[in-house]
Design a protein around this nucleic acid. Structure first.
Lengths: 219, 219, 219, 219
DNA sequence: TATGAATGAGAATTCATTCAT
DNA sequence: AATGAATGAATTCTCATTCAT
């Protein structure tokens, strides 16, 4: 090494690097195409083409299309959670000081804002959610993620009820389902509604509604 | 046998009747299979088989699969609207006497109740809604139906704002989108959530939230 | 009909006829290609091409490749049995008058003669037999056919033992297995041995051996 | 660690040894998988996996799959011959004192006994024999081995005819083919017949038949 | 009008082989 | 020498659509 006077600026990629790189490219391409054409419309051929790899690579890396799709779902969810958390911390320096009431509203607000200018991940996630509607659907990984979301809302709401910032006459888990349904439904409309003049104002209205809906009834 | 010498007095069904009958059978079968397996999972072969017709009939009657699917969507929507109206009239003898505030809540309630025990039509509609999420999807009839729904909510809300039963600080069209998103999102969860213990109580919670959210702010 | 002055010489084929015709063509082509390249070497594409049909027809008619192969096996076996019986009756006008000892020898002789100038069916059958050797092999329909053959030989041998024309110190079922193994083994050599100068004389030698082997021991 | 400053006194294995070891492991794994799934069913990936080596090693060592398969065939044949000879010597201390008649019978007996409890090599050999049945198959080593077997039998039989222990009215080469066909056919049945109750008694019956078939005709 | 036979494009998947590391 | 990432041709199977009957 020492004797190599003019070492190459960038050493050849290792096998591991090559693998990670192509895997990432495939996941990105898959998310994009799923967002555009749906799961069934996203053929492995189209994915590999967009990723700039050979036709055989997707199955070579992920085994089956289902496994690739699951991985896309997992990555998208993780990234969306991370983005939400990051945005929340940007908006409210002291997240810990917020009441649960304020935290629910802030989270909803940020989540909807995310879907006003959705990335491929966000769009893919909603598309994949839509593809779980058939009763015999299989798309793995979505159900558990949904349950985690319900749980998250339920915890927050319980906290709010304990501290008195959220009305106590609703069951937290049920309210969580309602919240999640609201978010997903509006996100879906934001994505698929061609005329977004009104849809883009939904966030404000949701906050208005939510403030009134969650607050403990007067007297 | 002996009487068959002369032509049968009354043929069982006319050609037109038979055509309508098989067309109906195909639409029913299509809705069921779409609800189970999604649009791409619903092959014309499986539809014709369940309808008890020949393999060639779907294309023969509807021309293309897309046309058949659009027809299923149209029929399902019409039927759901009709069912909602009928249920509304059953529940409230004097619908015309209800305030817009009450009418919105009643309609939402009935709509969600419908999806607690969904027929193939309802399930198919949600599945088809889900398949419009990809950005390049060809909705064919779903978009207009959604717009009609937004308009309907917007009218109701405007009326409520005029008569003072609904808070006036929200834009009716935007509130309509929010309402529709809420309904669709919860309906979708009702269909795809395996554990329905909490989901089945969403209707009550939605009403509680909605009452607080729509009412004019005190003071 | 009567008014049709110049009726077409050959009326258009009915649907059923078309189906039977293409099915037969596919089976013939499949047997040929299996005989040439083995089961795995017989791609559906090559079969449909030789049959002069479209690429999709084999699966369209038979569902899966396995089903097609099973059908080829069944047809080949039936035809070989029929040919053997026919040849037997041609060679011995009064088959019923033959002793079991003579009948076994005659059948073996005719069977081997068949494989001296094998048709595609015969060659395909041996090839398919060969593909059952792997322990996890699936090729259906071969096992039952083999058992029928064992049973047939066992019956014949039992009859010979009863009438005294065949040695009685062997178990008929076991002897049947030995006979069938002998036939299959020699048939396989007849097919795959490039230099047939000696192989073509195996039939005579087998008869010499068999005569001595089956006859009741002197004294 | 400290002692590693100087080179290790005795490296565990030389490069050559390691190479031979992995080569052997690959051949064993290949024979097993060929016995289970046939030649086409034995993918290089599955072989390398079972051998516990890297995916690339089979091609690296043997160049092509065909070369690996040929090598498996060669090794299996050599080993089977060696085993037969060894068993023969175990059973008959003075092989040289046996008449050719007795030697043929003994060899056949031992060969069949071998296939009553076949090792992977034996099973692989029969499977590979079966895969030579297609007319366009590329046997690669099977044909020569078969010829050696024919020659071996022919020599033995000639000797028997000279010494008077074997009937003289058969052509030795032809009788060799018949013998080899018999052995292979029964071996194949022993491997592929699920119900071995009768097959396991074939050896005894073959010997009975053979004794009568080979003996010079009385008078 | 209705049937179902036939087509052929497109899908996922397998796999021997090549090649950079 | 050995690894395993990447390739791309080949395979089976699905299915909307066309068309002869």
């Amino acid at each position: 090494m020492l004797t190599r006077v003019s070492a190459p600026v960038r050493p050849r990629r290792t096998q591991v690097e090559r693998r990670q790189e192509s895997e990432r490219a495939l996941l990105v391409a898959a998310a994009e195409i799923i967002a555009e054409r749906g799961i069934t419309g996203a053929s492995l051929a189209s994915i590999s083409e967009r990723a700039g790899t050979s036709r055989g690579l997707p199955t070579h890396h992920f085994g089956t299309k289902d496994a690739l799709v699951s991985q896309v779902a997992r990555v998208a969810q993780d990234r969306i959670v991370a983005e939400t958390v990051a945005a929340l911390e940007r908006a409210h320096r002291d997240v810990d000081d917020l009441s649960a009431f304020e935290l629910v509203r802030a989270t909803v607000d940020i989540y909807l804002e995310l879907f006003e200018h959705p990335s491929a991940d966000e769009r893919a996630l909603i598309v994949m959610w839509g593809s779980t509607f058939p009763s015999e659907s299989s798309p793995e990984g979505m159900v558990e993620a949904d349950h985690r979301a319900y749980d998250h809302w339920a915890e927050l709401i319980t906290r709010g009820q304990v501290e008195g910032s959220i009305r106590s006459d609703v069951e937290p888990r049920v309210a969580g389902i309602v919240l999640q349904g609201l978010l997903r439904g509006i996100a879906a409309i934001l994505l698929s509604e061609p005329d977004r003049t009104y849809a883009l104002r939904a966030r404000q209205t949701v906050d208005t509604f939510l403030a009134a809906a969650l607050a403990p009834p007067a007297g």
